[in-house]
Each structure stands twice: as structure tokens, then as C-alpha cells.
Write a protein that binds this DNA or RNA. Structure first.
Lengths: 219, 219
DNA sequence: GTCTATATTAGGATAGAC
DNA sequence: GTCTATCCTAATATAGAC
């Protein structure tokens, strides 16, 4: 019961893309990029400092001139991922502040899906390897994560309060909507038939259907 | 944009439950149970053979009297997980073979959700750590996985062909439905407000809404 | 089946030269 | 900033006694 185009690798995407503007210049940035690709494929614990160095083209010891430990490399990636996610969702919330629940939910789900299509490796590492961080290193990211979850919850709750949405349970509905986007990196990639726009449009439609705000024609 | 009750651990559940009847007796079974708990928490690469032995209460060397390698322990778990998943879904498919698409989809989603509520650790390891296996070790499980995916695809396609379902895209709809269940172990656990029945019922309803077969009352 | 002891390799991280 | 060399620990796995 897996996803379209699933294959026996952890990720489909290949290019370790990071958001523009936030990647540090020079070797520091290249370390992040190569670590991202390796962490996404084999996990944090399954990746050695020597592998990262060799992928970057430097000696493993040189890495410590840029980051004090392997964990700090992961922490940098997790921070970037959560900040980009929060920034995009906050923008969607802000842009549709005056609109109704259905428009706001659409914008939020679209943003959520698109960050997973645009940065699949980063999303995977951000969500899946944060547990490898110490509580202190993870805490700021967890705060952003909670804020993102609250964005979604607020919209669904408001839609229900206004009578625009009808769900058996708000938390379960929001969890289902979130799950759709979170799983996107497991199957979305260059060798597959869908465009990012298509996925964003259809998943936004599914979200509306989940909350009972879109009734497609019945036969 | 995470799930209800999410916390900074990889899993919420504690008890490393395995399906009845398939767990080998004695030390072999205890090794599987403890390895399951450890793999779920820290991943395959993040768990050492010494940790497993110490959790079981045996010396790490003794483990090799039962399994030839750490990878074989994981392979046993991945096999159990996929076989249980396939068995439950096949039972749901078989039981509703004479029914319409909506009933069949309901039964399938219910079974999919319930296996994730009943064996959250096993589902997590089965889905998330299979990539750590060699292709030969992973192949039988991948075949079962594909069969499970086909169960879902068949129902959705049949529903569309009969005009009972209306979706913008069959693969994206099936992927969304599958994603809901796959994420359940990330938040479902003993310290949370929902029963397994509640989640199964509501997620089956969401699946029907996704395929356009359930239109809730609008205000 | 289980232990102690150990071989062997790999891993994270540091020291110090250039 | 980058290298070579190295320390130290922990990892998988095996040998052989009981």
C-alpha cells in the first residue's frame, strides 16, 4: 500500500537542493549539500564523517574547520528546513488572511505540498532525522514545527466554527491533511509523471474534500 | 504541520508488539522484540548489536547463535511486517469481493489504518528501515508491498470506472489515502485521546471523501 | 546456547604542520 | 583552510571454552 512510483530507495530525488539565500557560501555550503544527500539516503547514523568529506572532496578532518561535529551539520540542515517550511506557510496564511476558510486551507495545503516537491531531500531529513539531535539542538525547530501545525489547526477549526467545514474530528482531519504532504518526498521525483502544480492542485482539492468543503459531482 | 500529539521522539508507542503466531519462540523471539523497539527508536544504523543483546539480557556474541548478522534480524522483522500487512489487506479484499467500491475501499482503509494502530513500531520499521537491507533481502517484502498498493489501486480504479468515484487523478488519490495510514504510527499511541476504532472509522470516511463518494451535509 | 576473549575494521574527533 | 597522522572508542563478527 505504497505510493505511486515507489522504489526501493529512501528517496527518489537526486539533487540535494537547498533554499536560495540561506545556504552558506563556499565549503560550508557544499558540506551541507553533500550531507543532505547522504543523510537522505542512509540516515544520520548511517552516514560517516568520512563519506561527507569524500563527497565534498575534502579530508574528513577539514570538516571540523567548518562545523564542530557531525551533529552540528544535521542541526544546520534541520534549522534551514524548518525555517523554510515555516516561512512559506506563514506567507500563505498572511496572504489569505482576509479570505474564507476554504481559500485559506487551499493556500496552506498548496504551500505545504510545494515545499515537499521543491525540497524533497531537505523535507525528508528535516522531518525524519530530527530525532538524532540532542533536545537542545532540536528545540527551536520543534517550536517552528508546532507553529506550522497550529496554522493548519486554526484554519480547520475556524472552518468548522463557521459551518463551512464538517469533520468527524478536527485533529484527525488535520493529521490526515498533513500526512498527504509529508509523504510526498517518498515518491515525487524527476522520473515521475506529475508536475509540482498538479500535485499541489489535486492535494488541495483532497484537503477540501476531507473537511467536507468540496462535493464533487456524483453519478 | 505535524500530527496531533507529536513529540520529539520517533515513536509514541512503547510496547514492541509483534503479530501472534509468527514470532519465533524463546530467545529468537525476544531478540526480535527488543530489536524492534530499538530500530523503531534509533533506526537500524543507529542501533548496535550490543544494545540489542543487553536489552534481551544476553551477551552480544550469543545473538549470532540465533541470527547470522544484524541485517538478518532486520530482515526477519521486515518480513513479518509485510506479511502481516498483506494478510490483513488480502482478507479485507476477499471479505468484500462481492460489494461495491465504497464498501471495498472502506474495508481496505480500515484494515490499513488498524495494522498501523495495532503494530505501530513494526509498521515504522517495516516501512522506514527496509532501505537498510540488501536488494536480495528486501525483494520479497517489496513484492508484497507492491501487491498491497495494487489492492488499493484496483478499488479506486474500479470505483472510477463504475462512476461511483470521481477523482482528478487515480494515482494521486490512492497515494493520499495510503499516506494517511502510513503516518499513523508517528502520533498514535497510548497517551492520546483516540481509539483505534475511531481512527479507522474517520480515516475510512476521509478516504471516501477523497474519492468523492461521500458528500457530508453542507451548511 | 551462552559465555569470555579477541580479531578487525570503522567511526568521531584532535594535534600540529603548511 | 586544508592536509597528514593519529588517538580513542565503538562497532560487527569470530574462536573456543563450558
Amino acid at each position: 500500500m505504497e505510493h505511486p512510483g515507489w522504489e526501493p530507495r529512501r528517496v527518489v530525488a537526486v539533487e540535494p537542493v537547498l533554499p536560495e539565500g540561506v545556504t552558506p557560501p563556499g565549503t560550508r555550503g557544499r558540506i551541507l549539500q553533500e550531507a543532505l544527500a547522504l543523510f537522505a539516503e542512509a540516515g544520520f547514523a548511517g552516514t560517516s564523517i568520512r563519506q561527507i568529506g569524500s563527497a565534498v572532496g575534502i579530508n574528513s578532518a577539514t570538516l571540523y574547520a567548518h562545523y564542530p561535529s557531525k551533529e552540528h551539520v544535521l542541526a544546520a540542515l534541520v534549522t534551514i528546513g524548518h525555517e523554510e517550511m515555516h516561512a512559506r506557510l506563514a506567507e500563505a496564511v498572511e496572504r489569505t488572511r482576509q479570505d474564507g476558510p476554504a481559500e485559506r486551507l487551499t493556500a496552506l495545503v498548496r504551500a505545504h505540498v510545494l515545499i515537499h516537491t521543491d525540497f524533497p531531500l531537505l523535507a525528508l531529513v528535516t522531518n525524519g532525522e530530527i530525532h538524532a539531535l540532542s533536545p537542545e539542538q532540536a528545540e527551536p525547530a520543534l517550536a517552528l514545527r508546532h507553529a506550522c501545525w497550529q496554522f493548519l489547526l486554526d484554519v480547520v477549526e475556524d472552518g468548522v466554527a463557521r459551518g463551512d467545514f464538517a469533520v468527524p474530528d478536527v485533529l484527525l482531519a488535520a493529521g490526515a491533511i498533513s500526512a498527504m504532504g509529508v509523504r510526498v518526498p517518498a515518491w515525487f521525483g524527476p522520473d515521475q509523471a506529475f508536475t509540482r502544480e498538479q500535485v499541489a492542485r489535486d492535494y488541495a482539492e483532497f484537503a477540501l474534500r476531507i473537511v467536507g468543503a468540496s462535493a464533487p459531482p456524483r453519478s
